[in-house]
Structure formats: structure tokens, C-alpha cells
Design a protein around this nucleic acid. Structure first.
Lengths: 138, 138
DNA sequence: ACCATACCTGACTATTCTTGTCAAGTATAA
DNA sequence: TTATACTTGACAAGAATAGTCAGGTATGGT
């Protein structure tokens, strides 16, 4: 039930980019140094975030990354979902098949009630927090 | 961000035991067959639940497991916490040290605001659901 | 008193996931 | 031109998950 470092690193990177918004693009090296995260690993994460259009890259010297939208229009859910693949705590509540989906034989599984409720709580929580909330900015 | 099968199997086992409450103890073999879960693996899980005093074991033929408390006094949180070890989605919000605790250098980490909120949402949700809720029983 | 049925314990293992590294590029602006 | 940055894909060590296996111990029905 743990988030991986993808999400935690990713959110920290996004906060960094958001805070420097007016100054321009933030390079991977800067984030890497400031947050003490492997720069090569960070590249992978920012790549995913770029493909989901949460950030834009600026090439060349003085280049780096910039937010694609305003901070109050980017939620933590957007970031976690992009990096983690899925937000749901169990697959049986989502319809997605996977190794851990064992409950499929029983549509009326009582346990599923709990997981569905949990999935909604997590979803509601993560989409209620924006980058702007974390940075104290609009 | 997935729950392991420990929690999902464990909850399903507990629901089974709760539903047969009046008929007496439920054996591992019964649960194993009904839920299609390895009986040896199930033993491990019920062992943990017994050590946390969520169930009691009844030995001998016709033996099995019985709830230690009434269904409305056992929450999904109790079960998940026992089997999963911890409920928190990130360690940095709990004070527990671990491999994924990398944020410790920065007490004012903006990202932590999000994780703390998430931890509370999960905790609140899981402790609001009891076995009785899932079984439609008191 | 048997002994089948159950629980109990600890060690072990295959597979998958996480958390990166490594190598070899391509694009851009000073 | 060339240093700086981004881009891509393959690879790998270590941890966690999801069990298995072997050998106990306890109890109650016959």
C-alpha cells in the first residue's frame, strides 16, 4: 500500500518546476541536485509527465521543463496516475485484470464494498490537491 | 499503491468467518475451498490475525476460527494494518524510516502536505468500514 | 487409546516490481 | 561549433510479494 518513489520524486520535481515558474525552465540537473534524486532516473519520470502533457520541455542550454498548465489546474492525482499507472488500491474494483485480480469469480464479493469505498476516498483526496495548493500560489 | 493479496485474502477470510458466526468455527480448508486461496498461505494470514486478537482459533476436529469481537467492532483498518504492516502510503509522513524515506532532509517539503492528507483520507475511510457493514449484520 | 483433523512454526523459493544505471543518441542556443 | 540539454531503449541489482514445504503440536470424536 505504499506509493513508489516515482510518485514522491515526481511530485517533488513538479513542485520545483511550479515554484520557478516565472524564472523559466528548470533543468533536470537543478532538480536532481536540490532534491538529491538521480538525474537519469528523474529523466524517465519527467518524460512520462511530458507525454501526458503535464510539463513541456525546453531544449538547449538554459533549457529544462515548464508546466504545461497553471498550477491550480494540475492535481496530485494527475501526477500520481501518470507515474504510478493506476491509482486504484485493488484491481478487482476497477475491472482491470492483473495477477492480483482473484476475486473476479464473485461479483457480489462483500469485501469489494470496502475496496470500492477506499478507491473513491483516495481518488477524491488526490484530485482535491493541486500544485497551487502545495506551493501557496495561483 | 496496490494492496497486497494479504489484505484482500485476509478481508475475504474475515467476511467468511463473520458470516458463519452463529454456526461456529470456520476451518481454513472451508475458506480455502470457497475463496480459492492456498490453504497454507491462508494459515499465515490467520495466524497474524490471531496474534492481533482479531480471531480466535478452535482446535481439534470441527475446529477453525471465530471472531474475537463482534463484527461491528472490527474495522477493515484493523485487518489491513495487521496484515500489511502499515497503512500509510508514504513513510515520510509517519516518521518511520525506510528505503523510500528520502524526504527527511526537508521538514518543510511541500509535497508532504499532499501525502499527509492522503494518509488521513485512507485512515478515515478504512476505519469507517466494519465487518458488520460488509456482511449486513450486527 | 487411537488418529484424523485441525492448528502452529520457521525456513525456503520463484517471480515480479522497484529503483535505478548505462550507452548511445538528437536538438538547440550561445 | 559545441557544450548543454533532452530522448530512447536496454539492462541489472535488490527488495517485496506470493506463495510452498517440512515438520511439528493440540484436540475431540470414535
Amino acid at each position: 500500500m505504499k506509493l513508489s518513489t516515482k510518485s514522491t520524486y515526481g511530485l517533488r520535481a513538479m513542485v520545483n518546476i511550479a515554484l520557478e515558474q516565472k524564472k523559466g525552465a528548470v533543468s533536470i540537473k537543478e532538480i536532481s541536485k536540490k532534491e538529491n534524486i538521480s538525474s537519469v532516473y528523474l529523466e524517465q519520470l519527467l518524460n512520462k509527465l511530458r507525454r501526458e502533457d503535464l510539463v513541456k520541455s525546453v531544449r538547449g542550454p538554459t533549457g529544462g521543463y515548464v508546466l504545461s498548465r497553471k498550477p491550480d489546474d494540475i492535481t496530485v492525482k494527475d501526477i500520481v496516475k501518470t507515474l504510478e499507472g493506476s491509482i486504484a488500491p485493488v484491481d478487482c474494483a476497477t475491472g482491470r485484470e492483473g495477477r492480483r485480480t482473484v476475486c473476479n469469480k464473485n461479483k457480489n464479493c462483500a469485501a469489494r464494498i470496502a475496496w470500492t469505498k477506499l478507491a473513491k476516498a483516495i481518488d477524491d483526496c488526490l484530485k482535491s490537491v493541486t500544485l497551487a495548493d502545495l506551493c501557496g500560489k495561483k
